[in-house]
Amino acid sequence: MPDAADAPAAPRLLDAGEAGLVVEFGDAIDEALNRRVIALADALEARALEGVRELVPTYRSLLVMFDPLVLAKARLREEIAALWATGEDRAGEDAPRGVWHVPVLYGGVHGVDLDAVARLHGLTTDEVIALHAGATYRVYMIGFAPGFAYLGGLPEAIHTSRRSDPRLKTPPRSISIGGRQAAVAPPLEIPSGWHLLGQTPVRSYDPARTARPFLFTAGDALRFVPVSPAEYEALCRAVEAGEAVAERKEA
């Protein structure tokens, strides 16, 4: 496993068509790899190369999409190698970003799989909630659907294989777990094979929220805060009124 303190291996540069380059740091779900991905995304963004169209950080690689008529791929490869050689692609790795606090109403119709997950692990539902809400997560990436946040940091005691029969629709804003990961879903009824533990009033994505349509960014830290049904309803009303109900606090 790579260690940021050592000199890690150079990433692989892979073609994704003439207008895409994948910078691959590894092939695992691993926090150290993900830190390097996001640090490189930050460094490239700061470099503001003409012709770079967008950057897509994922678990273990960074996809750079660019206009080949403006930026030659050879030049982009050199730029990435230079960032690598000077260590600039690792400079931002430890930058503190604060921690999102995301309210969750667990169980019942809001989290229909909570009981089953508890039974599977021989735990009470309160114990599952305490474990899930007791961890600090890292947003590994946003993908699959608008604002869908893949989180690492789920306590091992509640690692749960995905459902064998994925649901074609899940409630909007579901809080779920799948395998070693956790997730915050957007306010859309997405298909999912993950286990639904609860629901949040928070809209991770809202195109009407023009100043900040997306709440979370890859690399952010996040914690879940259990709320009562009354608190949940009040927070939903606040969201409806346009208030931000997910707080970002100092780490």
Binding site: A16, G17, V22, E24, T58, Y59, F144
Partner: peptide, 11 residues
Amino acid sequence: NIVSDGIVNGA
């Protein structure tokens, strides 16, 4: 199966 990564148009 691979660990999910980004997808370009035409992939």
